[in-house]
Design a protein around this nucleic acid. Structure first.
Lengths: 225, 225
DNA sequence: AACCATTTGTCGGCTATATTACAGTTACTG
DNA sequence: CAGTAACTGTAATATAGCCGACAAATGGTT
């Protein structure tokens, strides 16, 4: 991987646009780069130094494993998203891994400590980053508020709506989403059982609201969602 | 309110400890200061410039009102906490107010824009602030994770435990908490109905786990919680 | 083609919790 | 001290959605 290519990989993220070549090179010296295939599991080894990751291509899910071995989906990361220790505080006890959902992914990473140095030298970037973290917080708050106050059906609707808006391809009022999730994944995201999710999806299919297959989901009329 | 007193009000918050007198004076020039009594309602008027608040004394709750007029508790703010537009992004549509829970409160505030200027001039403070926001995010994530995966009883236990640790006065293994919340408040915080909360509290009382009154809550044995 | 793992579909029974409804208790206010 | 508003207590009913169990479909692999 050539230095200048790495440069562009970081540069085209809005957070890094204001940086000069020199500034990014500081990060790049230690920038990691990784490709992976569908189904692969990427561990954030806690022995390693804490890092911040940038997903350049594809989709992954972050899965947390609790004491009893239950797996819960913490986050779905899409192209262009930053993930990892965004709070700039390493937390050791969390037991998480990432699983590749799309056919292949490309991931950049850099050390948290280097990123901190960069922020110290770039106050305006530090401010942007603070706002970025704040925005993330607001989103999380919102989605949790949904989880708590709405029923499973509404949650699924909302989820599909968000997904369609973020990644769907729209023509007229129908939206086609590339479906890289299983019904079980979706159930976990909207915090319900797999069975309930299945039932709701089928219900929507018989209603004509969506056409569901393992490859793609078609929302026939976005306005009705 | 004398300038130097305002200075100390800000200065003794850990976030502002690194600032010089001069730096804080910048904020102080426009620092607001306010006292209020129990039951008073403080509106964050959206017409006003966005502010960041610091609760110097007492307790307040932040209540959000949705379209249908339902009220939900968004946050309980305690002495020393920052609140308001922590994300540094004004958001206009949110309809929130603060209600004073303790006998009286003292609140400092300063303009978000002034705070931003300060962060731009103090990169290391910007970094601390980012970590602070991050910590807040982590807490929120945690409490929501509890809300979703645990049942009402566990949630109440957890809530009491947290409360006792934060504000309780401990002697041996018994903890006394100054109870400025109604059972309805608690129910809202742990996201359950008032009736369920009442039942659970009574159950705990007959079990001997707690002694409940409107003035204080005594946890007889902290180890059993 | 045969096999196996994963994903999806379906069905009752079960339980925690919301909801409705009302009664009793506290504590402030004139 | 009476009156009222805000809390707290209790019980009966209704239900969303979890769970276990199993069958069917799909898709990849040898």
């Amino acid at each position: 991987m050539y230095e200048d290519l790495k440069y562009w990989y970081l540069r085209d993220h809005k957070l890094f646009r204001t940086l000069s070549f020199g500034q990014i090179r500081q990060l790049c010296i230690i920038t990691g780069f990784k490709k992976a295939q569908k189904g692969e599991i990427i561990y954030f080894s806690s022995s390693d130094l804490p890092r911040i990751f940038l997903l350049k291509k594809g989709n992954i899910k972050i899965v947390a494993v609790d004491e009893e071995g239950n797996e819960t989906i913490k986050d779905i990361i899409q192209k262009g998203d930053l993930f990892g220790e965004l709070t700039l505080e390493a937390d050791s006890q969390s037991n998480e891994y990432a699983k590749v959902l799309s056919d292949d992914v490309a991931i950049c990473s850099f050390l948290m400590s280097d990123f901190e140095d960069l922020l110290l030298r770039n106050p305006s970037m530090a401010l942007s980053y603070t706002k970025f973290v704040g925005l993330k917080m607001k989103r999380i708050k919102n989605s949790y508020a949904n989880l708590i106050s709405k029923d499973a059906k509404t949650r699924l609707f909302q989820f599909l709506k968000d997904w369609a808006e973020k990644e769907g391809v729209r023509t007229e009022n129908t939206v086609v989403i590339d479906n890289y999730l299983t019904q079980n994944d979706m159930a976990q995201i909207i915090c319900t059982s797999r069975q309930t999710a299945t039932q709701l999806l089928n219900e929507m299919e018989t209603n004509g609201t969506i056409v569901y297959s393992r490859k793609e989901i078609i929302i026939t009329d976005m306005r009705k969602l």
